[in-house]
């Protein structure tokens, strides 16, 4: 039985359909990410699972029980909020104990479990501080401890790392993932950061305009995007139309070769002109306009080349090539043939 089952879930705000008949199934212990741009309905879906919004249509089941109409306090889920939502008038310890206090867990056990939770997020000894005395990253951990200490069936995380800087965010990604493995709770994670989704998730649901466009493991979503939107949102779109097919090729799968060189047998080869070169340190991004129409981005590792060498490539004619199995078809019917 799935931990979370969402069927036909719909939410409207006036004329706007924020969430449009969504179906999802999330397995116990899964790290499930809802990925999408702002306004795509991912946060609204999360808030409906939490109980902050009541759906207009459809149902939400948690471990087989229909909770669609239950208030938040009667649902076996806890939320980590984007702005952390720590109670400013309570200490860290009181914040973490809040859920247990509400459920009338005896004081001794409450204290013990709160301390364990703080230890898990590496904040042991911070219990007496006020949230205002903590850094952003520490507040984030307190918010996590405050949710996890209740041992919810499902933990909902609403862009929890959004307010942190890049270094801290990457570090927290690793920590969140290991905490999730340790406690074995189902995580439902909302983010607009495709890299975050790819590195942490067991499965990703890509949201666009209130609908789920694709659900699958990170590799499947990245390598075989089922729509142009996904190709563009999870990575760069790189969509071209050839022989009545529209497909995408990931930029790092494409190789640039000199015009005269022998093509690899079985590879797809096309001539083009380098329009633009961006040196990004570890790799270089080339924009290549193809003679047969369309433009592709190509990523190449700077294994031996320096920045002056790669930048010289601008304006040069050359060939791009890739293995046919790297092509991911988006649309068989549409697209002009040349």
């Amino acid at each position: 039985m799935p931990d979370v089952r969402v069927s036909g879930l719909t939410k409207r705000y006036g004329e706007v359909v924020a969430v449009d008949a969504i179906d999802l199934e999330i397995a116990p212990g899964e790290f499930f990410t809802m990925l999408g741009p702002s306004g795509s309905g991912k946060t609204t879906t999360l808030r409906m699972i939490a109980g902050f919004e009541i759906p207009d249509e459809g149902t939400i089941e948690l471990a087989g029980e229909d909770v669609s109409r239950l208030p938040p306090y009667d649902r076996p889920v806890n939320t980590v909020f984007q702005d952390y939502a720590l109670f400013p008038h309570m200490t860290v310890q009181q914040n973490v104990e809040y859920g247990l206090m509400v459920k009338r867990v005896p004081k001794g056990e409450r204290r013990k479990r709160a301390e364990e939770a703080l230890e898990m997020v590496r904040l042991a000894g911070y219990g007496e501080r006020k949230p205002s005395q903590l850094s952003g990253g520490q507040r984030q951990r307190v918010a996590l401890a405050r949710a996890i200490v209740n041992r919810p069936r499902v933990l909902l995380l609403d862009e929890p790392l959004g307010a942190l800087d890049l270094k801290l965010r990457q570090q927290m990604q690793v920590e969140l993932k290991s905490i999730q493995r340790e406690v074995g709770i189902t995580f439902v994670y909302v983010t607009h950061d495709q890299e975050e989704a790819l590195t942490m998730s067991d499965r990703i649901a890509v949201f666009n305009q209130g609908r789920v466009e694709q659900v699958g493991p990170p590799a499947a979503v990245y390598e075989h995007p089922q729509s142009e939107f996904i190709a563009g949102f999870v990575g760069v779109s790189n969509v071209i139309a050839r022989d009545g097919r529209r497909y995408t090729v990931r930029p790092e799968k494409i190789r640039l070769v000199e015009n005269g060189s022998e093509p690899e047998p079985g590879w797809h080869v096309e001539p083009g002109v380098v329009q633009d070169v961006q040196y990004v340190g570890a790799f270089t991004r080339y924009h290549v306009a193809l003679d047969r129409g369309g433009e592709l981005q190509v990523l190449a590792q700077n294994l031996a080349e320096g920045s002056s060498q790669v930048l010289e490539a601008k304006g040069r004619r050359l060939r791009v090539q890739w293995r046919p199995e790297q092509e991911s078809v988006i649309d068989e019917s549409e697209g002009g043939s040349e």
Binding site: G51, F52, P71, Y73, N78, A85, L86, F87, Y98
Partner: peptide, 22 residues
């Protein structure tokens, strides 16, 4: 902030308790 009241409800508190505690 609205999120504080939501957090209290999320952690199991009914409206009265949220009112008196938060």
């Amino acid at each position: 902030p609205q999120s504080l009241l939501e957090a209290s409800a999320d952690l199991g508190a009914r409206s009265m308790r949220t009112f008196f505690r938060v």
